[in-house]
């Protein structure tokens, strides 16, 4: 019985301390800064394989091993279904599939999905579907998402005119990121 009282007392003290710490005036919450997207490489419908205005001269971008890739697509009423099957392949560039250049394949894992409000911003849609992936290894990796229900007009998906009515983005995984010194 005595131990139980001690445990209750300890728990009570812990809860009181916790709540007072949270409510302490002047506590520094960092002001919500900086605004960050969790060190994600963010891709949207404007950032995918071979957009029409790249005129076939695109190249997949590189990301490091273990990178967080986030895909954001306009949705509602359209829903997006991750496609991990054999139909998910890199788009050709200069009439070549990048896997010819780099036969290795990286690994991609979907680990989270969520939605963001987006009412009234992209015609025909009301939310943004967010898919979070981890990519690991070394080599080509492709992320594919298919609309449900399927559509033939990309503009019904909130996509730019002239783009395919589904989503494909290819990245090369395992390359350290460099910038101009």
């Amino acid at each position: 019985m005595r131990r139980r009282y001690l445990a209750i007392a300890a728990l009570t003290v812990l809860l009181l301390c916790t709540s007072s710490a949270v409510a302490a005036p002047g506590s520094d919450d960092g002001g919500g800064q900086p605004l960050t997207n969790g060190h994600a490489y963010v891709f949207t419908q404007q950032q995918r394989d071979n957009l029409f205005w790249w005129n076939g001269t695109w190249m997949p971008q590189t990301v490091p091993n273990g990178a967080h890739i986030q895909v954001q697509l306009p949705s509602d009423p359209i829903h997006w279904i991750p496609d991990t099957g054999p139909t998910c392949q890199p788009s050709p560039t200069a009439d070549l599939v990048p896997t010819w250049l780099l036969p290795l394949r990286g690994r991609v894992d979907l680990y989270d999905r969520s939605t963001l409000p987006n009412e009234g911003r992209i015609t025909g849609t009301s939310t943004i579907s967010v898919f979070d992936y981890h990519v690991t290894g070394l080599g080509i990796t492709t992320i594919c998402l298919r609309p449900d229900p399927p559509a033939t007009d990309p503009e019904l998906l909130g996509f730019p005119a002239g783009t395919p009515p589904f989503y494909v983005v290819t990245v090369i995984v395992g390359v350290p990121q460099l910038t101009v010194p």
Partner: peptide, 12 residues
Amino acid sequence: LNKLPPLCAAHP
């Protein structure tokens, strides 16, 4: 430097 710019891109 994680991607070459599209060589023949038009304006988006």
